[in-house]
Structures are given as C-alpha cells and as structure tokens.
Design a binder for these strands. Structure first.
Lengths: 342, 342
DNA sequence: ATGAAAGCGCTAACAC
DNA sequence: GTGTTAGCGCTTTCAT
C-alpha cells in the first residue's frame, strides 16, 4: 500500500506538505503543488480513510436511514437515496446506508463510533421514536419529513400545505367551484404521517379563501375501495367538477373509473394529483410532483452547512411546482357561460 | 469522547484486555470479561471506527454499487439493498452506498482508501466495463448477475436457465404442448443483460427435451406493443395454450389483454411469469419469483467467506422455485381428452 | 490469563 | 512557503 510518506519522498517534500496539497488548508507554491500531484497520480496514492478520520476527527461519511419496509412508494425512496449519494459525492462525502429497523441504537452506534459525521433520516413520522436520540446526539442530522415538533431539529420536505392549496388554486382559476380531495387511507391520517394532514389543511384553507365548495375523502388503495368512494362522491356532489388526488396507487385507476362512470376527463371532470413525478407524468395528470431530487440535495446542503458550523432553519419547505397536463380544463359550467356570452 | 483507555481504567484492566474482550481473539477470564462489559455499558463506549480500521486494516464496511438510472424494476433493487444491509449487519459490517455512475474510479477510490473491505456490485452486464478493475482490485468482490466471462470473479444470481426450464416443465406436466415465451424488448437482448438470454435458453432446452412446440417473442413494454405481439401470437399459433412471460411491466396488462381477446385464464390459456415476487404474487400469477432476499444475503455470505480467505465458487446459481397460483391449469386439449376417456 | 508498548497512516499544531 | 513532530484511538505482537 502506498502511503503519504511514499508520495512525500517521491515528490521530495515532507508528508505534511502532501497533506496540505490535498486539503488546500495552506498555500503551496505552484511548483511544489504540481510535483506532489504528479507523484500522487504516478504512485496511485489514496489516503487511508481510517487514518484520516482518526487524525482529523472527520470521516467524510454521512449516514442515510431509509425506511425499507414502509408502505412508501419505492421508486421515490430510490430517487431520494440517489440524489443524496450524488450530492454527497459532490461534497466529497460518502454515504452509509442504514435501515430503519436499526432504530435509535443504530443512530447511536454510527455516531458513537465516528463512522459518520452526520445523519440524514428519511420518512420521519409526526411522533418518531428516534427524535429524542436525534436531538441529543452530538452529530448533526437532517430529517426528511416533518415531525410534530421541529424544535432542535432540521427538517426538509415539500411544502404540502402549499401543494394542496396550489391544486385548489389551479382549479379555481379554471372556473371550478365544487371540488373534492381524494386522500390517503384513514390509517395514514391516524398514524402520524404529517404530509397527508398537511395537504388536507392546504386544501381546506384554499377552499375557504376562494369561497368554494370542497370536501375531503380518505380513500383506500384498492380498486374497489376507490371505486366505491368515487361513486359516493359523484352521487353526493352532482355539481362536482374537479378532483384532487393525493394517493399514489389510485391515480391510474381513478382515471379509468371516471371514464367508466361516464365522465370525460378533463371535459366533464378535472383531475389534479400530488405524487411521485414518474406516476404523475406517466398518466399525463396535471399536478404537483414530489421533488425527490431537490429534497435529497437540499438535505445534503443542510447537513454540510451544519458540519461547517452554520446555523440553518429548523424547517425548510420546498415550493410546490404545479405542472399542467391533460387532465385539467375549464369547468363545464364556466364553459357553458362562455358559450352563452358568445 | 470515551475511549478504550477510559474503559480499561474503569474496569481496572489494560487497554489490550478491553480490546480482546471485544474481539474475542484470546481467552479472558469470565470475571474480567464481565467487569469490562459492565464498564463498556456504564460509560457508553463505542470503539472509534477509524482507529480500528487503521490498526486492524479492516474497516468492517462493504461497498454496495447500485444501478440507479437503469430500467430495472426498482422495488427489486430496494429489496436487494435491504437484504444486503441486513445480512451485513448480522456479520457486524456496515454498507456504503455507491452509484453506478462513479464507475471504475469509484471502485478504485473505495478500495484504495480502505473505505471498504469488499465490494458487491449489482446488475452486472455481460461485458461490464468495470470487470477489469474488479478482477485486479485487491479487495474481494461479489457480482449480482453474470458477465460473459466469470473467470477470476464471484457471481451470484437466480439460475435463469433453470427458471425458464421450470416454467416449461410446469406447463408440460399440465399437458400443454404448444407454448410461447413472451420476453423482454429486443434492446434488452442486444445490450448484454444476460438473464434475458438465459431464460430463453432454458425455455428452448426444455421445449426440445419435452418435444414440445415453442416460440420466443421479444416484446415491448407498452400496452400497445404487448397487445400487438399477443394478437400476432394467437393468430399464428391457434393451438397455443400456455404463455411464459418474462417482462415485468406487461404481466398485468397481458392478463387483461388475453381476457379482451376472449381467452379465459387459466381455462383457455395458462400464464406463467418470471419476475419480482411482489408483482407475481399481486396478480396471482403462477411463476418463478426473483428471490431478491436470497440473492442479497448469499452475496453477503460469499463476501464474508472471501474476507475470511475461504475459496468460493465463481458462479452461484440460486435454484428457482415455481409457485403455482391461479393462472395455470391443465391444457384445454388434454382436458378434452380426459372427458373423451370418461 | 493479562500487560506493555510499538505502530497503523494521517493531520495539525508548532517551528522556522 | 515548508519541515518537524506529537498525537488521533485502536490492535497486536512480544513479554510474562
């Protein structure tokens, strides 16, 4: 194994000079710098990670805790993870993969042994059991998702309240006055998943602001459950012209069901979705995409800032971006009005 | 930070004794062992990973290279990864996550800096550009998937040849004599993805062995492409009674399409699938599941064996397990014969 | 069965 | 702008 002393000898400098060339922590003459770099490539030198972390008290590794057994949409998890790895590498850090089932002790182990300098935790729930550990741990951490109490933490996620509102705003602009939110299964609301509730809040706020009629409907993820909910919905609200759906697995089936019920989308019924961009774009649905890449890279930026001792906000909310596709159009009623005017 | 000397003092032993209690590399009296363990928990001691890897030349980390941008079925990737992490933890190792796009240099970096003791590479292609590096690297590696030439490597995967054959065998036993393989898109065969070709080989071998009629059909992943292929197929082979499908995205649509074509499954047409178990079981399809967990844990076992200096086979093929569900039944023709006999 | 001591390869004062 | 040196916290001979 080639070590720093070998490089130093080869470049006719001291070991510390090699170290400083690598870290850039002190000015080095252009000539020496060049010589050292040549020797490094000539010998194929790679600094020993362990020695480095021992001497510098920095492992240049960040731990990423992923929820492997959860009911989350898996491709999104992957996108998160990919984005975290890529961003971390851009900051010269590596990523250690931890599973949620190691729980609190996993966090303590990784932090305690200086395996990682920081921790990113995905899919945090409202009252997550790991929160106390994260607060008291001496390594910086960033959470993806919002717990009930963010004090003493750093959290990042899509602004789901704004996302819910953005969907309503979009429908309102198109002249819709009676809309519905097709949400997650009841269980998701009860178990503290935060974002489900937040979308509902954004929805209700916007409905009130625009003086519209709106109702929210938890909805199962099976085709049958969805069909039942939708039929009830159409029956109880005959003047419904817009549906906002925040429930990944039913986006596709919902479109089919509406067709089966004799409603053309978007002519008779507009549909807006909040969900993973692969899903949303695959079905050509207007809506707000879950910005997995942005969330991942933001999490890394926040972690790096904390490692540099900078102060960061407890909550970072990513602005929703609504993309208009083929499932939303002017409300039937307002189109009728337009014709009458003509 | 509490270090080994602190534990030693607290337990009134030397540092080396603490180290040996931890590693078990030399006999320690029950009494001392107990005292040391008490001190460890009392002080909340965690050995410093960097110091450890420096002194022992072992990081206790294995690198896992995942193909993030590939066309692979993402949930399966996740299952692999989860299985690798869990198995690694059972061997007291952690997992470093690398993305495929770091390529060969990523492997050299991780190995060269002693960040990881070993490398597991997922989704290896027939002529993977990273193979030379993997062969010459001084750290052990295990590949998930088979390249064209496995010499000097250690590979593990489902035995796709046997899987293809098992599907044919199953149909043969049910009395089917004319079957078809609905495979991956043409592009997958051209690009060297190994398993596609291997399934086809197993299929053809079994067809020949049983003296059956069989044809293989590459198939696009869109609903339309699949529908076209299926209609051609039904038209050209009127006596077709069984379809083996090895193409994740079309498993569901295929069942619908057959129904639309007036074929009842399994009464008129049996369907066997090779694919991710979540998919296969979701649709109640008979078939061979991709044993992600088994592949992941086997990969870890192989890596551990290599780290222990044991010799391991270049190729480990996991036996396919065919599960019979609701989409296969006795061939219509043979049932007719049975009736005639009665 | 236990202890003492010599590194492992690197970084960061401290010197000049 | 560069060199010297004292650790970083652990493992593992060597010694008893």
């Amino acid at each position: 194994m080639v070590k720093i002393a070998d490089v130093a000898r080869h470049a006719r400098v001291s070991a510390s000079t090699v170290s400083y060339v690598l870290s850039g922590k002190r000015p080095i003459s252009a000539e020496v710098k060049q010589r050292v770099q040549n020797s490094i490539t000539a010998l194929g030198y790679h600094p020993h990670a362990g020695a480095r972390s021992l001497a510098s008290r920095r492992s240049n590794v960040i731990a990423l805790v992923v929820p492997l057994r959860s009911g989350m949409h898996v491709p999104v998890l992957m996108q998160f993870a990919a984005s975290v790895v890529t961003s971390a590498r851009a900051h010269d850090h590596d990523v250690l993969l931890l599973t949620q089932d190691e729980g609190e002790s996993g966090l303590r182990r990784v932090a305690g042994s200086s395996l990682a300098d920081a921790i990113i935790v995905m899919d945090v729930e409202l009252d997550d059991p790991r929160l106390p550990a994260l607060r008291e741990l001496h390594v910086p951490s960033v959470l993806i998702g919002f717990p009930a109490d963010t004090s003493g933490l750093t959290c990042v996620d899509l602004d789901f309240v704004a996302a819910g509102a953005a969907c309503v705003d979009h429908l309102h602009e198109l002249g819709h006055r009676c809309v519905a939110l097709l949400g997650s299964p009841h269980a998701v609301y009860r178990r503290g998943t935060g974002y489900a509730t937040r979308v509902a809040r954004g929805f209700r706020d916007a409905i009130a602001r625009h003086d519209m009629t709106g109702s929210t409907h938890p909805c199962g993820i099976t085709r049958e459950a969805m069909a039942a909910t939708v039929r009830d919905l159409l029956h109880e609200h005959p003047d419904l012209t817009g549906i906002i759906v925040h429930n990944e697995p039913i986006i596709g089936p919902l479109l089919e069901e509406l067709r089966d019920c004799g409603r053309r989308v978007p002519d008779d019924m507009s549909v807006v979705a909040i969900g993973p961009d692969d899903l949303v774009s695959r079905f050509g649905v207007s809506g707000v995409a879950l910005p997995a890449d942005a969330v991942g890279s933001t999490a890394v930026e926040l972690v790096m800032a904390k490692l540099d001792g900078e102060a960061v906000p407890a909550a970072t909310m990513l602005h929703p971006i609504l993309t208009v596709r083929e499932t939303t159009a002017a409300a039937p009623l307002s189109r009728r009005r337009l014709k009458e005017k003509a």
